[in-house]
Design a protein around this nucleic acid. Structure first.
Lengths: 150, 150
DNA sequence: TAAATATAGTTGATATATCAACAGAAAGGT
DNA sequence: ACCTTTCTGTTGATATATCAACTATATTTA
């Protein structure tokens, strides 16, 4: 299929979709939480859901670099949403905990996340989403381990 | 559909796909062109294909901010792939032209772009791509102009 | 034509992505 | 115990994203 875009493929549209979605997310986030970014919110959510994971594992979970996570966490601490203490048994790691203020923001975030998802995926049937997800998985597999013919 | 990811949706997978694709692109690019980024390559290609567009229009075409384009162009000039002169009729604009070296790199880029696309989309049928593209367009439309119910 | 407005591009500030180099700590093997 | 390797996280350098403020120029309008 030919799409009239610079690189003539759906991958260009993929880029466009992600950027549109990020913009929507940030917009909705601004409405409920003061001065936090989508990535900071995502990191906070993941830290809340998976308190036992270390930073490296968190990074993998959100497809970020461990360096990026370090800096995002730094900002979350600066904003008073997170505290960092020494890990009791492994002194390479840190024990991160979410502050009361962080919990407060988290509570307001869940609605926003739902809103983001429902807005972006409005009017899409289950079957269509299913198909979409499968295609994405194929693309990911192709990119991560390119088939020999390529 | 439920996906076992932090935000439980395909939008998460979308993010993953884009990152995997970008990594593949940079990897393939590194193999043929010395020291240029995917965004720089894309900008060079678009400048070549649309020499009459101004920076703002280029920015829209590649879904970037005009500030980003300014900086990318700056780097392309530094690398000797582009020259910037005064625009003959509108002194707010610039006349950008691709140098011989830029043309040389461009020539080698086209193969890489094809490779990137073919690698990422290997094994996908036309019908699947068509459907995928349509779904992406729906998501984009939803994000840009959220339906009132949301 | 003078004033108001719009447009093109740059710059600054901040956040994130990526890679490489690094330090400290833990684990393993001898 | 000692040495090597591995693991965890930080830091630096550079590129990009985003928003806002700004300059210079063009266009519109009164």
């Amino acid at each position: 299929m030919i799409v009239d875009t610079p690189t003539q493929t759906v991958l260009y549209t993929l880029e466009q979709a992600i950027k549109a979605y990020r913009k929507l997310c940030q917009h909705n986030l601004d409405a409920v939480a003061g001065d936090i970014t989508v990535d900071q919110a995502l990191t906070l959510i993941v830290l809340d859901k998976h308190p036992s994971l270390n930073q490296q594992q968190i990074a993998e979970l959100v497809f970020k670099d461990k360096a990026s996570i370090t800096r995002i966490i730094e900002l979350l601490i600066q904003k008073g949403l997170l505290t960092r203490e020494l890990h009791p048994t492994d002194r390479r790691k840190f024990a991160l905990s979410i502050t009361a203020q962080g919990k407060h923001i988290l509570a307001r975030l869940s609605d926003t996340i739902l809103l983001n998802q429902q807005t972006a995926l409005a009017g899409l049937e289950q079957a269509e989403l299913q198909q979409f997800h499968q295609t994405l998985q194929k693309i990911i597999a192709n990119c991560v381990a390119p088939p020999p013919c390529a």
